[in-house]
Design a protein around this nucleic acid. Structure first.
Lengths: 363, 363
DNA sequence: TAGTCCGTCTTGAACGATCAAATGCCGAAA
DNA sequence: TTTCGGCATTTGATCGTTCAAGACGGACTA
């Protein structure tokens, strides 16, 4: 119960007015040092914390960031990426004085109604979207409504005049890294298990592999022959792997667009190197080499970009210090990629981060 | 931008007072039918939605439920359970007019400070805790502060006078189910890979196995011999499996306290049936038979219990209709357990749900 | 000496909703 | 006709904060 301590209580305790207390907390520079200390002491003594609701009423800012928690997918393997991203987001947001508000919807169309709902009641200051795709209705809607947001995922197929802040991981660099690694092991027939053409993420990952092979001297015809497209999922991966293995010129190694596909490939039974994507628990469990996304850093960048948008010129930068991602001391060697931040003008409005390759038994 | 529609706008549009609009939305029974319809029409026409912040100021209720998102654990396999639970919670909460606010902390001690923080600023109406354990400081603290909460996890070792609402899955029933299944296949030496004694969840899961063996005629000495305790994690599982396999009387089947341990056991290479716990994506990926927790239903029950606490007598039951969990049409047969709800007095203050066994290749 | 400005602090109003109490209206009872 | 009670609706106050403007004293300028 503990009756709420209000700003008036603090003011009385410190023998000043409400506004002075407010100033001490929000614009300390206008308050005399002596007064400031006295007020701070009162704040501590009474355990005062500003009511978010009251503040929101006056300022219109809720200090909330809305994010979607994905429904369990197919085999549940891919949920991992978003869930870990969400964790990073919660952490980075908290450091900047924001909290994460969850919502769910089944599809991206219904999501628009949820946006409207949330904006009408809880009034989150911004949205974080994941899994952007071609013709994504969500980003268009948010742009039209002038609601701040960032996406984890590039603006696939978005015209230059409708850009927005985003963070993504360079998937092509990841598969390129994997392919180079296999080339280095002496492999020449390196297959790719990917998704049907048309998805930004899937095509990007395929490109990294294809370009690397091309650079290594493989001709377009052979590349096409080594490329296999199928739906995501372990069983599909197994079937697709067979398609590349049971020929007169079988592949001797595989790069995959997801861990699901890679696990399927492993189950095809041939003892060839297989590299997955996302470094999910499933990959770790079976010793699958996989491309790992720096999810905590992705989340931190998302928050940075949001703060730029929200705090305008980015005045009081509460979230100081470098994002020290730290070396993993996991199993397997980690090839850490360097971070690439594109800076078009004064401030970067997006970030393309580098994944790393986590080597395990499978390669 | 779209200037916020306030209750006053609706009132003007419908030619009534603010309070009447408020009554239409909150206590429709005091408003004349004709007026009610007119106001509802105005609400729809203007797209009015009550400002959560303003409502919170007056009523003191935020319609927020705070929940923790766990940091990635060891091999990340167990994060799955909480993440899926969180998804279910978001969905059930939304149905009841609540939203989920995320927070993280590294340990349960630091969590108390976060509670205090959140209560001081965002003022969530309730907390949802996961992973309760013996001597959990969090439940004690929340009880002392009289903050409503539910736990996903039983009140391990909590005295009768300090009970609270909880939901859990009957782990013993799960391992018992698994053990009976293996007994039915003709196995007589069924080993158990579990965690060190002292964790409520781990001991519970062990009990289900041990009791089932005992009921089947296995003596205490033999049971002790079949019981292996180790830390969680795939490598530990593999090592422990060897300890039970490389003897003169090896086990012919294994029940495990987690999918991590079970995956380790599979990697031990013997072709014996292995049953895991939690039905994680990793389990599905490798075709591991596993005990599945009804996480969506657990979440729904948590919300039900919270509503009982929050809405007092539970007046307007917004979340009507049965929670239709639906049969899974996944791979593998599913043995659906029936739901057991204990009802001490008038209202149940807790729920112990039944897990189910998802059979796959491994057994 | 009066006027102006600056630094510091205070006062009144407002954000948008709900609570509590007052009001007006109508018909039934006196 | 008057009075009363109940229903439907309205009015004023309030939640805790910040904004905008005002007050006050001292120093500096004209």
């Amino acid at each position: 119960m503990a009756n709420k301590v209000t700003i008036a209580d603090v003011a009385r305790y410190a023998s000043v007015s409400r506004q002075t207390v407010s100033n001490v907390l929000n614009s300390p520079e206008v308050v005399r040092e002596e007064t400031r200390l006295r007020v701070l002491e009162a704040v501590k003594a009474l355990g005062y914390r500003a009511s978010q609701a009251a503040r929101q009423m006056r300022t219109g800012r809720s200090q909330l960031i809305a994010a979607r928690i994905e429904p369990a997918q197919d085999d549940g393997i891919n949920g991992f990426v978003f869930d870990r991203f969400l964790h990073g987001l919660t952490e980075s947001a908290a450091r900047a004085g924001y909290r994460v508000l969850l919502y769910t919807t089944d599809d991206h169309e219904a999501e628009l109604a949820t946006f409207d709902d949330l904006l009408g009641s809880y009034e989150p200051d911004a949205f974080v979207l994941t899994s952007t795709h071609y013709g994504d209705p969500r980003t268009a809607w948010l742009l039209d409504q002038r609601i701040p947001f960032v996406t984890f995922g590039r603006p696939w197929g978005v015209p230059p005049d409708r850009q927005y802040p985003w963070v993504d991981v360079d998937g092509a660099a990841g598969t390129a890294m994997a392919t180079r690694y296999l080339l280095g092991l002496g492999h020449r027939r390196i297959g790719f298990l990917g998704w049907p053409a048309g998805s930004g993420v899937g095509d990007d990952r395929r490109d990294g592999w294809a370009r690397t092979l091309a650079a290594g001297g493989t001709g377009p015809a052979e590349i096409a022959e080594l490329d296999c497209r199928t739906q995501d999922g372990v069983p599909h991966g197994e079937a697709a792997a067979h398609a590349l293995l049971d020929t007169d010129r079988p592949v001797t190694a595989l790069v995959c667009a997801s861990d699901s596909l890679a696990l399927g490939a492993l189950q095809a039974g041939r003892d060839i190197p297989v590299i997955g994507f996302d470094d999910t628990p499933s990959a770790r469990a079976v010793g699958l080499t996989s491309v790992s996304q720096p999810l905590a850093e992705v989340a931190a960048r998302c928050v940075s970009l949001l703060l730029q948008t929200l705090d305008g010129d980015g005045a009081r930068a509460r979230q100081a210090g470098a994002h020290d991602v730290g070396g993993r001391t996991d199993e397997g060697d980690v090839e850490r990629g360097s971070t690439v931040t594109a800076t078009p003008e004064a401030q970067p409005t997006y970030a393309l981060l580098q994944p790393s390759l986590v080597r395990r038994r499978s390669a």
